[in-house]
Simulated assay, not measured.
Amino acid sequence: MAAGTAQETQNFVTLKGSVELIVDFFNYSLNSILYQRGVFPEESFIPTQHYGLTMYMSKMPEIKKYTDEILPHLKQWLTEGKIKKLVLALCDVNSKEPLECWEFRILAEETPTGEIKQQGTKPLKDIQQEIRNVLRQITACVTFLPLLDCVCSFDLQVHTKKDTQGEGWGDVQPLSIQNAQEVQLRSFSTSIQNVHTFVSYKSV
């Protein structure tokens, strides 16, 4: 009985594990959105299996370099409970107008003293299933999102608490879409941090 209990406890994530899951989720989501929405040529992505799903990851060196630079910052700020939301915007490359925004709103579970929880209570397999469902839904969004009929670029904003420090990061004007329609997708929880996904797009 004791051995079984110990094994079960090991399947619950810690804060570090929660952060790793969220950063991994965001990396795959970012690449999936860029692929599904045609921001870069289809041939610049390679298929890979993740959580039992076929996901597409960019093989462009500049995208890999970009994610390699930002992911460590995300890990640090998530560990410190500093991030409020991540916003990935797809913009008209000429006018710079945001046409589509993907928001990942993050809420941390806190202890009675106001500190972020260090130990979760949800089995890892349940968290992975929830993440799988969100990734699957992101892929399915192409069925209702308007066609992006112009060349697009992407912009990433990390909305943090006021006392957050990060080299190379600065204050910017929040991205917004005129006459936007917003759709809430599935959420997932590590029982330490909760991630709520939304997509907003310009109403035609």
Score class of each variant (00 low, 15 high):
residue 84 K to S: 14
residue 110 E to M: 15
residue 143 T to Q: 12
residue 33 I to S: 13
residue 131 I to Y: 05
residue 202 K to C: 10
residue 185 L to Y: 01
residue 67 T to M: 15
residue 79 T to Q: 09
residue 194 N to P: 07
residue 192 I to C: 04
residue 93 V to P: 01
residue 130 E to I: 07
residue 42 E to Q: 05
residue 154 F to T: 02
residue 61 P to D: 14
residue 27 N to L: 04
residue 153 S to C: 10
residue 194 N to F: 05
residue 55 M to N: 03
residue 101 C to D: 01
residue 84 K to N: 09
residue 16 K to D: 14
residue 31 N to K: 06
residue 87 V to T: 13
residue 1 M to I: 12
residue 98 P to L: 00
residue 179 N to T: 11
residue 57 M to S: 14
residue 136 R to V: 05
residue 89 A to S: 15
residue 31 N to T: 03
residue 108 A to I: 02
residue 76 Q to V: 10
residue 171 D to R: 12
residue 128 Q to P: 01
residue 132 R to S: 08
residue 36 Q to P: 00
residue 73 H to N: 07
residue 97 E to L: 09
residue 114 G to A: 06
residue 134 V to H: 00
residue 23 V to D: 08
residue 173 Q to G: 09
residue 170 G to C: 04
residue 89 A to E: 08
residue 112 P to G: 06
residue 109 E to T: 07
residue 184 Q to N: 13
residue 154 F to G: 05
residue 85 K to C: 07
residue 86 L to D: 06
residue 46 I to D: 09
residue 129 Q to G: 00
residue 132 R to I: 07
residue 149 D to P: 02
residue 34 L to R: 03
residue 110 E to R: 14
residue 10 Q to I: 10
residue 42 E to C: 05
residue 199 V to Q: 03
residue 157 Q to T: 12
residue 20 E to G: 13
residue 47 P to A: 04
residue 45 F to Q: 14
residue 166 G to L: 01
residue 78 L to R: 07
residue 46 I to N: 11
residue 177 I to Y: 00
residue 59 K to G: 09
residue 6 A to Y: 04
residue 187 S to Y: 03
residue 166 G to H: 00
residue 84 K to R: 13
residue 129 Q to N: 13
residue 59 K to T: 08
residue 181 Q to P: 00
residue 15 L to S: 07
residue 67 T to C: 10
residue 159 H to P: 06
residue 10 Q to G: 07
residue 48 T to E: 10
residue 8 E to K: 15
residue 195 V to T: 10
residue 165 Q to K: 15
residue 198 F to S: 13
residue 136 R to I: 01
residue 91 C to F: 01
residue 56 Y to A: 11
residue 134 V to Y: 00
residue 74 L to Y: 01
residue 197 T to D: 05
residue 68 D to G: 10
residue 55 M to I: 14
residue 198 F to R: 11
residue 17 G to V: 06
residue 65 K to G: 02
residue 155 D to N: 13
residue 102 W to I: 03
residue 163 D to R: 12
residue 143 T to E: 09
residue 144 F to I: 10
residue 120 G to P: 15
residue 59 K to F: 05
residue 24 D to L: 15
residue 158 V to F: 00
residue 1 M to Y: 02
residue 177 I to E: 00
residue 63 I to V: 12
residue 98 P to G: 07
residue 161 K to A: 12
residue 83 I to D: 03
residue 49 Q to K: 14
residue 187 S to Q: 13
residue 90 L to Q: 08
residue 172 V to K: 09
residue 116 I to Q: 08
residue 196 H to C: 04
residue 93 V to Q: 15
residue 2 A to E: 09
residue 169 W to C: 13
residue 195 V to R: 02
residue 99 L to V: 07
residue 83 I to G: 11
residue 57 M to V: 15
residue 74 L to Q: 13
residue 169 W to F: 14
residue 56 Y to T: 04
residue 158 V to C: 12
residue 81 G to T: 06
residue 29 S to V: 07
residue 6 A to L: 05
residue 62 E to H: 13
residue 174 P to K: 03
residue 5 T to R: 10
residue 145 L to C: 01
residue 98 P to A: 09
residue 136 R to F: 08
residue 117 K to F: 09
residue 179 N to Q: 08
residue 24 D to A: 14
residue 70 I to G: 14
residue 144 F to Y: 11
